[in-house]
């Protein structure tokens, strides 16, 4: 069952990766970053149970915190930072 979960997480991760590659808007990419971060958290947790090391769960929790703070920081910069947008049609 954990194997199936791991495969599902990897598939979701690659789908989020495709969204980050293709875009097209800034927020698609931010969401893709957030999604990959969430999947990293889940993947570490699942790998922990898959290899009989449930203490990986703590690491996964810290990753969730880092991911949350990171996305907040990125969003703040997107909202308040001054991006010079010459020649880019997507801002």
């Amino acid at each position: 069952m954990f194997t199936a979960a791991a495969i599902g997480i990897l598939v979701t991760m690659s789908l989020a990766l495709m969204r980050a590659l293709l875009g097209p808007t800034t927020f698609d990419r931010i969401l893709a970053l957030n999604m990959v971060g969430t999947k990293t958290t889940l993947l570490i947790a699942v790998v922990g149970f898959l290899t009989d090391r449930p203490d990986f769960m703590d690491i996964a929790l810290v990753y969730a915190l880092i991911n949350f703070i990171g996305v907040i920081a990125v969003l703040r910069y997107t909202k308040y930072g001054e991006f010079l947008t010459e020649g880019s049609a997507e801002e």
Binding site: L33, G37, T40, Y63, I66, N67, I69, G70, A73, V74, Y77, T78, G81, E82, F83, L84, T85, E86, G87, S88, E91
Partner: peptide, 22 residues
């Protein structure tokens, strides 16, 4: 995770506000 995904993303975004985005 902390330096690569956290701090350096924020630093690179800070640099991005000073340069062009392409």
């Amino acid at each position: 995770a902390a330096v690569g995904a956290g701090i350096s993303t924020v630093l690179l975004l800070g640099v991005l506000t000073l340069t062009k985005s392409r």
